Computed example of a mutant assay.
Amino acid sequence: MAMPLMKEIKRRATVLMCCYIAVYFSPHYLPMDNLSSTTPTELLSTTTPPAATNPIRAQWDIDNCTILGRMFNFMEDQIYHMFLYCDTVPSLWQTLSQMYAHAHNDARILKLYQDIAQASQSSLGLSVAEFFGYLQACWEELAQYELLTNLPPEAAFLMSKRLARQHTYQFLMGLNSEFESLRIQNHNTSPMPSLYEAYATIDSDERHR
């Protein structure tokens, strides 16, 4: 991963983490005596301030300013100036979430794709069974981040078939050169064997060597 991109991801993750700490844990570090019984969580769930004539409006303003101040204090100057227009905790939190909430997941997804693309038996020093298990773990973790359930049923079915074939290709491409003849045999078979059929063939060959 390019260093500027990694630096940006770390910066975004740090911003979100600091704001999270500021809202939920700042009472342990900084006094917040002015806060009412309303918790920061309750304030975050309030999309709009109470009406000006509402008796709790004055305390709401105190709570909002106190928590907002803690969140701003945890930010770097360049980040702080981006969010000056946010005058309530809910609006600031919503903006931060939209901008940074997926930074960690995106970084992990990118790393998984890199690991899969670079994976091979020889580079990892694994047996066929171990190499298959390594790829399987990467695929399963990716599936947790990129859920097919978010797609319409027909699209999810087509995507699952495409992924199954892609996984077979990735497994065969990463095998040691000693399995070249079996790899070509699997590629030339029509219809192409499933991932598990291809694995069974290669694994059996390795065990009998």
Rank of each mutant, 00 (worst) to 15 (best):
M99P: 04
Q114M: 00
E8D: 11
N176C: 09
T46N: 12
S123W: 04
L30R: 15
K7C: 09
Y196G: 01
Q144F: 01
C86G: 12
N105I: 12
S36N: 04
M159F: 02
Y196T: 09
Q144V: 10
F171T: 00
N186R: 03
M192Q: 12
A117S: 08
I21S: 10
L175E: 01
E141T: 01
A200Y: 04
A2T: 12
A155E: 15
S204Y: 00
D61E: 15
M1W: 02
E76V: 00
D63R: 09
L158K: 12
Q59M: 07
Q59A: 05
S120D: 08
L96S: 07
G69S: 15
E140K: 15
L30K: 14
A155C: 02
I62C: 01
H187M: 14
L92I: 13
A103W: 06
L195T: 06
S204G: 03
T14F: 10
L126T: 00
E42D: 08
L16V: 03
A58K: 12
I184W: 11
L44H: 11
A51E: 11
D33R: 11
I116W: 07
A13F: 02
R207D: 03
L175F: 05
Q78E: 13
L44C: 15
S122K: 11
T168L: 01
K10P: 00
T201V: 11
S160N: 10
A119L: 03
F132D: 01
F131Q: 04
W93I: 03
R165W: 01
L172G: 06
L163T: 13
M75N: 00
H28Y: 15
Q185Y: 05
T39P: 10
D87H: 13
D63M: 12
P153T: 08
E76F: 09
F171L: 04
M3W: 07
F83D: 01
A143Q: 14
H102W: 13
A129H: 00
F179M: 13
I9N: 11
P193T: 07
M1E: 03
W93P: 02
P50W: 04
M99Y: 09
L142W: 02
M75V: 00
L147R: 02
R11I: 06
